[in-house]
Design a protein around this nucleic acid. Structure first.
Lengths: 145, 145
DNA sequence: CTTTGTGCAAATTCTTTGCACCAAA
DNA sequence: TTTGGTGCAAAGAATTTGCACAAAG
């Protein structure tokens, strides 16, 4: 079972340490878009030596290697998603819950209510390299960063 | 000229103080998606008594009243946009520049190159109120909060 | 007067850094 | 024995809070 996770990490050029396997496994099995603190609190119950720094370090490595998605939908703190395919997210401004939106909404702007959600705000962000930067070898290598 | 700004603020139920007019005017005339610090540094040249806290306060009021858009495209710090209609944004991961994308890209997922930009990442965020929260009078009133 | 906005300093929160220790190749 | 991962404590950066003063109606 965690053999699968180990392979997943290796496929993404991430050296599969104990901590990395546990954190990646957590993300694959908890599709709740957790924060660093949620991950840390949950995992340290069964792995009391784990440090917050390691959670930060690990998530950075995983994100840089496209094994995990970092969500900036919450201005306070980052959330993480083990499902890396492009998909839309919804965050409730009252309870904070973040959910995936069905792919059928991916290519359209949504206004008002859908699927029993009241949408009040839409943000569409693209990231990459602009014309000035993209040619100049300024694109970083993968591992670490 | 700043009479226009004053009217704009009033139309959004924001009491038009000197500082608010100056900050709103700055955002309407600087479509560079500035951060709090950029706004503070630029404006305090001509208004040395301005405080960073007031910039924070003012932006919060403006955002809450839909007079300004807050962008969370940069995980480090918030950027602000005086143009509030829904539109897509692109941020260069090398130089940090944020630009608006033509509306023609709004309703489609972009991969690879467009308009001389190399897109490596797409984030589609919706915010609002989930089914559990939307009926319960949990939607905050506009002014302040 | 009374309410609302401003601004300083201190506090909070999330994240990163420096460095020593450990483990695996 | 060298390289890379872990974890503690401290530092850093962005933002918020508490409170006193000022301004406007």
């Amino acid at each position: 079972m965690s053999g699968r996770v180990k392979e997943y990490l290796q496929a993404h050029n991430v050296h599969p340490s104990m901590q990395r396997i546990v954190i990646m496994n957590y993300l694959l099995n908890n599709r709740t878009h957790p924060t660093v603190d949620m991950i840390y609190n949950d995992i340290s119950k069964s792995m009391p030596t784990l440090s917050r720094t390691t959670v930060y370090n690990t998530l950075k490595v995983l994100v840089n290697n496209n094994a995990v998605l970092q969500l900036d939908i919450d201005e306070k703190e980052a959330h993480y998603d083990g499902y890396t395919h492009v998909h839309a997210h919804f965050r409730c401004l009252n309870c904070g819950k973040i959910i995936d939106l069905s792919p059928k909404y991916l290519d359209k702007l949504i206004t008002n209510e859908i699927d029993d959600l009241l949408i009040t705000e839409t943000q569409l962000y693209y990231k990459g390299y602009c014309s000035d930067c993209k040619d100049l070898g300024k694109i970083p290598n993968i591992n670490n960063k």
